[in-house]
Write a protein that binds this DNA or RNA. Structure first.
Lengths: 230, 230
DNA sequence: CGCGAGCTTGACGTTGTTCAACTAGAGTGG
DNA sequence: CCACTCTAGTTGAACAACGTCAAGCTCGCG
């Protein structure tokens, strides 16, 4: 997706879209964009707001989290690492944002005005198709998480979360967790205590090694097995 | 979305897309399409298959259902009634179908060759944007169901399912259920027994009236209240 | 050095699943 | 026309899974 040239004058996002856009279109898009920095825990797009902007995660990690208004529960629909499009879920229909997008660690985000982007998409089918493929990926992840939550019990779900973090976020079997236990629980849809007890049992069973914020998966096979049997 | 003219020569789908397409494009699309009939329980698009076709539900009701390969559980991600696009979830990336789409009652479906549709979308941004919005709606429903399942306990989830059926599928507070109790359970992510016990308790509490396959919601307020408190 | 947020542990109660037994209706063949 | 079977629906009791609660711990930061 990312074009070959890695000209330092352009952001990842710009290099990504420029292959689909004419020079004029690219200038319009750039004019409608702004680069912002978000710290850990800061909200990028807020649940309930009008979807005035699309976001592109330039660097960092962000969670898609939903807050219930009736009970005080929060769930994490999915988690993504840069570079990725955010907020596409709220992009293609005119409802208010279904969920919030929150930085999980220090992140750079490009905000783009929706109307301008939509106009460009209308005039450029290849560009819109490319964007939509990226957005679909978000949805797919949320649905996979849904399937995990609905089908498996806590052990399998927590295994899924750890495997996901390793494979799709940190790209390593050893990683420094930027999520709290509470966030892990919100992601796996179980209580904090369950996350903790499961992780420490796995530690005893030599499946993982926890050193402070660092998690190392030492027995990938067994973890995948747990994920599989649910 | 549907154009004013209701010329009997055209299907709902055709009337829907023709406002976005040039005559030539429309002819190409029509040539790549075929109308099929599906009976109750028949699979329209199968989980694991290559996504060679997009489907448009012309009449009837269809469920998006996921079968686990490790345990024998099935969950219904969402349910839709005609007219709607199906299979968009599998449309915009090249993976195999994540889930099956199955007719819940007698349905007419138009199958369209993906490559042809994609080609048209590339050349017509307005058309692709319109399709995206329809497909996004599918995703949104699945995510709303995810949120319901993750946040609420069985009472609230079953209430959500009944309210959804009433409001989005049958468009009436009295309706003839085309789902079995087992399917209701798969939709609400709980056991069949729980669906049955909850429904019959609601019957005693005069919230609903069940007569064979017919369900009548008599106390909408109370049902919404149950949904709300979870 | 002390305070607070995040983390950890075990005991306990609730929720929801599983199991087994039973009923009702629809379709089949003698 | 009536057993016979098969599937869907129903009920309650036993049991497992999971969340809640209460208490104590640890580490980083002011």
């Amino acid at each position: 997706m990312i074009s070959e040239k890695n000209d330092k004058d352009y952001t990842i996002f710009e290099r990504m879209v420029m292959q689909f856009l004419k020079e004029e279109e690219f200038r319009i898009l750039k004019k409608a964009s702004v680069l912002l920095n978000f710290g850990k825990g800061e909200t990028i797009l807020k649940q309930g707001n009008r979807p005035t902007h699309i976001a592109f995660l330039q660097s960092g990690i962000a969670k898609f989290s939903f807050n219930s208004d009736t009970n005080d529960r929060t769930i994490i629909l999915t988690l993504v690492s840069a570079p990725k499009i955010l907020g596409g879920a709220n992009l293609f229909y005119k409802d208010n944002n279904l969920f919030s997008i929150v930085a999980v660690e220090k992140s750079e985000v490009i905000l783009i005005e929706s109307d301008v982007l939509m106009e460009l998409m209308k005039n450029n089918g290849v560009f819109s198709l490319a964007l939509f493929q990226l957005v679909s990926d978000m949805f797919k992840r949320a649905i996979l998480n849904f399937i995990s939550v609905a089908n498996k019990q806590k052990e399998g779900r927590i295994a899924d979360v750890i495997l996901y973090l390793s494979g799709e976020i940190y790209f390593n079997t050893t990683f420094n967790l930027s999520l709290t236990r509470k966030e892990l629980a919100e992601f796996a849809c179980c209580s904090v205590e369950n996350v903790i007890m499961t992780l420490s049992r796995w530690q005893h069973e030599k499946i993982i090694v926890i050193t402070g914020k660092q998690i190392e998966i030492t027995d990938m096979k067994k973890l995948q097995q747990i994920s599989k049997i649910g």
